[in-house]
Design a protein around this nucleic acid. Structure first.
Lengths: 197, 197
DNA sequence: TCTATCCTGTCACTCGGTGTCGTAAGTTGT
DNA sequence: ACAACTTACGACACCGAGTGACAGGATAGA
């Protein structure tokens, strides 16, 4: 695995040629499997959480979207951050700027899917601004949890931090229009915009 | 300016040699002025908002940190997004993955400074988790505003969107030790529909 | 067995980025 | 005015990531 080489010499100090040769391949063949050098790290780790998008779609339609995000991400946390290997990967990512940038790209793409999933749910319609705001906020919570977890040296309780973040950032009023939900009548989009106050 | 070339042929399709030659320089000299090709775009735009950090430090110590972020960022919005040139830059950044990644790197660094500024204020002490959570949430609001603004084709009212985001994501209880109810900003936050055209 | 397909190695090339050296300008001190 | 020094730039070589094109070997199916 390339992770061993990265752990030894660091990501930037390891050549693609070296990775490929260690795997019994050529540089050219390496790029046939991975679109970029960075993806050799992300290959094994589910950083984007594709399952999360499906899980959100599977949540009850009348549930508060913030609650849905909280619930799904807590489940996801539980599944992911278990093995020591993903832990080492995340440390490497956090300490390498180019990997961090790549993680961000994947996260941005993931956020688009999540916000689409939020907006596509039946029942209460969310406008795109609100959906993206909730998604980005949830992503911010995840990011903060990871930072704190890294600062703690991996000893912090990620689930507890996640709960704390989600509780702290609870939106003023996500869904206040339950009475207008019509599950059987898609009809025109009568989106109740997120006016607060 | 390199922005002209980028606007014509696109960022990835423009080589550093071409940029340098258009500016009457050598490739080597280009890299003496800019650490990377991407920085030729960010050079003129204040994407990191260095002033913001100072402004946060200048806010009253007993002010709710979320309010401080809101206030300072609204001021910053007003100063920045005026010229047509920065508008074109932001469009280019948003449509180019490598530039987007670079923007993220700068934002991450900026967030560190902001969260440090929040934690360094006298009076009520914030733990690092809370400070980072508030900072990342504010950054998420900014990001969402930019997305919506871009989707609207640049016609949306960024200040109104910012207010809406900050109000919507208002933390449950940041600092409950304030009984000085300041009159805040004149005029209620108008929830503009966030629709283009 | 013949053949189409897939996988891989090899070579050549582009482009971003860096180190090194030489040199033509200033700039300062005496 | 002269020497010493600094600054800035060009020229060249070099490295590593990534891509395109081509050739050959293995394999599955007829």
């Amino acid at each position: 695995m390339a992770l061993g080489l990265f752990a030894e010499r660091g990501f930037d100090e390891t050549t693609v040629d070296e990775i490929a040769q260690a795997a019994g391949l050529t540089k050219r063949s390496f790029f046939r499997y991975f679109p970029a050098k960075e993806d050799a790290v992300f290959g094994g780790v589910d950083v984007t959480g594709e399952q999360v998008v499906e899980d959100i779609r599977a949540r009850p339609a009348d549930e508060d979207p913030w609650q849905s995000l909280h619930h799904v991400l807590r489940q996801w946390e539980r599944q992911i951050h278990a093995s020591e290997q993903t832990l080492a990967s995340l440390r490497l990512i956090e300490s390498t700027p180019s990997l961090h940038a790549r993680l961000y790209q994947k996260r941005a793409q993931w956020r688009r899917h999540v916000s689409d999933a939020l907006r596509d749910r039946p029942g209460v319609q969310l406008d795109s601004f609100t959906a993206e705001l909730l998604t980005n906020a949830a992503s911010a919570v995840l990011d903060t949890v990871s930072q704190e977890w890294l600062r703690s040296g991996g000893t912090a309780d990620r689930a507890a931090l996640l709960d704390r973040g989600f509780a702290f950032l609870h939106p003023a009023a996500t869904i206040r229009a339950r009475e207008t939900a019509e599950p059987h009548q898609p009809g025109p989009v009568r989106a109740d915009r997120g006016r607060h106050s």
